[in-house]
């Protein structure tokens, strides 16, 4: 195969593959920066995927579908927020149970739609002008979905907001030391709720991308661990939105490269690669972290209780 074509195809596929990871991981970064860990991403993506598909199928409009996907993620995460923030229960178990519930519910609800292709899927776009560029054009600007570019924009906006605005400073501070934020007179719970809800919204959109754009259909194993990989991605990027983009693209590239090796290795072993790679990425992060003394937000996973209440 022509090397040029190989590289182009790999990068293009990597971008597409990375898109749901980017959406979900960005959402998780925002949630975890506020100190609330959300292990329900996998389930929320599944709910988003099935809801998006069902709505798009019945209304014939993918954008309503996408909106519904986001709403489904939002609704599920509001449950998690309530349990973890207001009730101050164990956020890890709450998230995990939502994944189980989300996967089961989505499979249940999605039975009617299994195997039926979406008549009006999201169409890939070519970016005007930029897609004409030699080599770079077909690599990055042809045949991708709007959601892919939207993810990059959201990442950039998230970075600017997190590091250059007061709101972002407050978010980061809540995740590090909620008592300090409380003593400064700011609403810790409200910030956490907002962060978790945004996380759910983005996870829902990630699922919607899968069922509306990436492979426009619904199947029970659709999410297939991508939510968990997105969680790993959030850690690997050290909770920084820009790094999420780079890490996500890196993951995507590695997976697609691995698929190229299908002629050499048995397919089952290749499908294993994303998960192996995730473990390696986490090991690498932990190893580097020891040297840089940078870690998770201090208050991650701990409910906040002001002295009296």
């Amino acid at each position: 195969m022509d090397v040029d074509l190989l590289v182009v195809a790999t990068v293009a596929r990597a971008l597409a593959f990375a898109t749901p990871l980017l959406w979900a991981a960005l959402g998780e970064v925002i949630a975890e920066r506020s100190g609330v860990v959300n292990l329900g991403v996998e389930g929320m993506m599944a709910l988003g995927a099935v809801t998006g598909f069902a709505v798009a199928f019945t209304t014939g409009d993918v954008w309503w579908g996408l909106a519904a996907a986001g709403a489904a993620g939002l609704a599920a995460s509001s449950l998690h927020a309530f349990v973890a923030i207001t009730l101050r229960a164990d956020a890890y178990v709450s998230g995990l149970s939502l994944t189980m519930l989300g996967l089961g519910l989505s499979a249940l609800v999605g039975r009617a739609w299994v195997g039926r292709p979406l008549p009006t899927p999201m169409r890939p776009v070519d970016v005007p002008l930029l897609s004409e560029l030699p080599l770079v054009g077909p690599m990055l600007f042809q045949g991708q979905h709007l959601l892919t570019y939207a993810a990059l924009v959201v990442a950039a906006l998230a970075w600017v907001w997190m590091y250059r605005t007061r709101g972002g400073l407050v978010l980061r501070s809540v995740g590090e030391n909620p008592a300090a934020v409380d003593a400064a007179g700011l609403p810790v719970r409200r910030v956490r709720y907002a962060a978790v809800l945004v996380g759910g919204l983005l996870a829902g959109i990630a699922g919607g991308y899968l069922s509306l754009a990436y492979r426009p259909s619904w199947g029970e194993g659709m999410v297939n661990g991508l939510g968990w990989i997105a969680l790993a991605l959030a850690i690997f990027s050290m909770w920084d939105p820009l790094r999420v983009v780079f890490a996500g693209l890196l993951f995507g590239a590695c997976f697609t490269l691995a698929f190229r090796l299908q002629t050499v290795f048995p397919p089952e072993l290749l499908t294993m690669l994303p998960y192996v790679f995730t473990v390696l990425a986490l090991v690498f992060t932990a190893w580097r972290r020891g040297r840089h003394a940078f870690g998770a937000p201090e208050a991650l996973g701990r409910p906040y209780l002001r002295g009296e209440r």
Partner: peptide, 28 residues
């Protein structure tokens, strides 16, 4: 307070911006 309400990982001025009611939103 006796136990300081400071975010260890942030800088001095970032901690100040946190507690400052009227500070502007952009690059506080």
């Amino acid at each position: 307070a006796q136990h300081f309400h400071l975010v260890e990982r942030h800088s001095v001025v970032e901690n100040l911006a946190l507690g400052f009611p009227g500070v502007r939103a952009w690059r506080p």
